[in-house]
């Protein structure tokens, strides 16, 4: 039995939890049961819908400000340019802060799924706290399969962008998948992310630090495990351009 709606009911009645849930929703941090319950509530609760839209509008508006006009937040140093995003099915990309963990603990007998609070930075780099780091997200056109002529795409990075997230449609194979970013001579590997699983929409995501991207073109290779070997499913030639 799905108890997420009951739990949601209880939590939305508490201002602090209500705020936490809204933020969690906007940061894509909800597990499927809670996400469904929350979105169904949005459909029947105009006040909640207003609050969510308001917060989304604030986020979008603040993001529209040039970086120099907002207070600086020290970014955490990142040790390597290779930053694969973990597959969503493996503990997702969220971690529970203490308060939420306590609340979730109270509900553990009711709800079998853990409820996690997310930090967007984790989604874009894993591990510690990347902090405030603007990112560009690109979805690659993926209707072509293996053997197709690689398509050269130019992607323009936003000014101040620190990370690049690539969304790549899976090839429909059972997986797991691997994504590699390599130079056009296929000698240097800038990123390798193994054991990826597609999300609900069949997309795989990897992130890489913008300053770790090569000058000129590189190749993004999608592979899936076939038996015990990786098989190339597609390759894209990308050229990243930096603004300014």
């Amino acid at each position: 039995m799905n108890h997420a709606p009951d739990l949601l009911d209880a939590l939305l009645g508490q201002p602090e939890e209500r705020q936490r849930l809204i933020t969690l929703y906007l940061r894509d941090g909800m597990e499927d049961d809670l996400l469904a319950a929350f979105e169904l509530r949005l459909m029947d609760d105009p006040a909640l819908l207003d609050e969510v839209e308001l917060e989304q509008a604030m986020v979008d508006s603040l993001r529209a400000l040039p970086p120099e006009t907002v207070p600086a937040v020290p970014a955490m140093p990142v040790a390597t340019g290779i930053e694969p995003m973990p597959p969503p099915s493996h503990g997702r990309r969220w971690r529970p802060p203490p308060l939420w963990a306590a609340a979730a603990g109270l509900m553990v007998g009711i709800l079998s799924h853990a409820l996690w609070v997310g930090v967007r930075g984790d989604a874009l780099g894993g591990g510690a706290m990347p902090g405030i780091e603007p990112a560009d997200v690109f979805t690659l056109d993926t209707r072509r399969g293996a053997g197709s002529e690689p398509l050269r795409t130019t992607l323009e990075l936003s000014r101040g962008s620190r990370r690049v997230v690539l969304q790549i449609a899976s090839s429909g194979d059972p997986g797991p998948y691997r994504v590699r970013v390599i130079d056009s001579g296929r000698k240097v590997e800038y990123l390798r992310s193994d054991d990826l699983q597609p999300d609900t929409f069949g997309l795989l995501q990897v992130a890489i630090r913008a300053d770790a991207l090569p000058e000129g073109t590189c190749v993004v290779v999608l592979e899936s495990m076939d038996g015990s070997a990786w098989q190339e499913r597609r390759a894209d030639v990308l050229e990243f351009k930096r603004r300014g």
């Binding site: 604030m58 603040l62 907002v70 207070p71 802060p97 308060l99 930090v119 967007r120 780091e133």
Partner: peptide, 24 residues
């Protein structure tokens, strides 16, 4: 909005929370 938040700390809080995705 930023102009209406007189304290630098408040502006930073908002930026960290809404844009940076840091937790409370």
């Amino acid at each position: 909005l930023m102009e209406q938040l007189p304290m630098a700390r408040d502006r930073e809080l908002l930026n960290r929370y809404l844009v940076g995705g840091q937790d409370k």
